[in-house]
Simulated scan of single mutants.
Amino acid sequence: MAKIVVIGGTGHIGSRVVSKLLEHGHDAVAASRKTGVDTMTGDGLAQALAGADVVVDTTQAPSYAPDVVLDFFTTSTRNQLAAEKDAGVKHHVALTVVGTNRPQDISYFHGKAAQEKLIRESGVPYTLVHATQSFEFAPAIVFTSTHDDIISVADALIQPIAVEDMATAVGRAAAAEAVNGSIEVAGPETFLLEDFVRRNLAASGDQRPVVSNSESTYFGARIEERTLLPLEGAQTSTTTLIEWLATNTTP
């Protein structure tokens, strides 16, 4: 049985990946700073990856500051790949985001693109799982888009996915052979970003006004209408926004 080590495996997404792999009979182990593994310094990596066949990276940068994002994803990824080569790991799976491979000016996406480049050039067999933004990401969009109690979002489309479904896709990639390329996963529905935000707010009784226009930005960056959408042929999950809101929102 293959040993699968999930880096960031005690976090919001990684813990779900570990649980799903274990439920399906895989030998999955969580590795994170909570378990003594620090990918930024490399501490604990060699011990965590001993005997590992597959490594899954679900780590997240500690902030959205451009320099922090770039430093985190490049340093963390270099350390992981170096340790994987020493351990003889056969498959590196990285959770990334839809849109990194198209023109845009989102600093977080630039950090993820740098991460992906390191993985592609590492020589370690790999699978990149590009996911759309999650339903759970709505509060962050609201926070960064609020000005004087008005929420102003970019005039763009979004095809959000439930984190549970995202974790399922990552787990499936980890249990399969490396594709040495990318797969894209997305939710089943496409919304105007304005509508997505408004529905999330309404579900919790928040009546703040939501507007969109061509001047509004997405995390400080101008985006096109389809920047956040997957390409044709992406895998789509089944959980709808209404279904997710019914079990994840407290009025």
Rank of each mutant, 00 (worst) to 15 (best):
G42M: 08
T250H: 07
S204G: 12
T35I: 10
G44Q: 13
R208I: 00
L118F: 04
T250V: 09
E184W: 01
R120G: 13
S19D: 15
A167P: 12
P125H: 07
A46S: 12
D53C: 00
F135L: 01
A2N: 15
V97Y: 15
L245M: 06
V185P: 14
S214R: 11
A50T: 14
V124Q: 04
D105W: 00
L157D: 14
R226P: 03
V197N: 06
L201K: 05
D148K: 06
G123V: 00
E225F: 09
G25K: 12
T10V: 11
K112C: 02
V68T: 13
I242L: 07
F191H: 08
V55N: 01
V5Y: 03
I223R: 06
I242E: 02
G111K: 05
R33L: 07
T77G: 12
I151T: 06
H12A: 08
G9P: 02
V17E: 03
A154D: 03
A30H: 01
N101I: 04
K90D: 10
D86V: 15
A202H: 04
K85C: 01
R33N: 10
T190S: 11
A113V: 09
R172G: 15
D195E: 15
E232Q: 06
L193D: 11
L70A: 13
H91I: 08
D165I: 08
I158E: 07
E136A: 15
E184L: 05
P251L: 07
I161F: 06
A114F: 00
P160Q: 02
R226Y: 06
T144F: 11
A175L: 10
T227C: 11
G8P: 03
V124I: 10
A113S: 04
Q60R: 08
V89F: 03
V185S: 08
D206F: 00
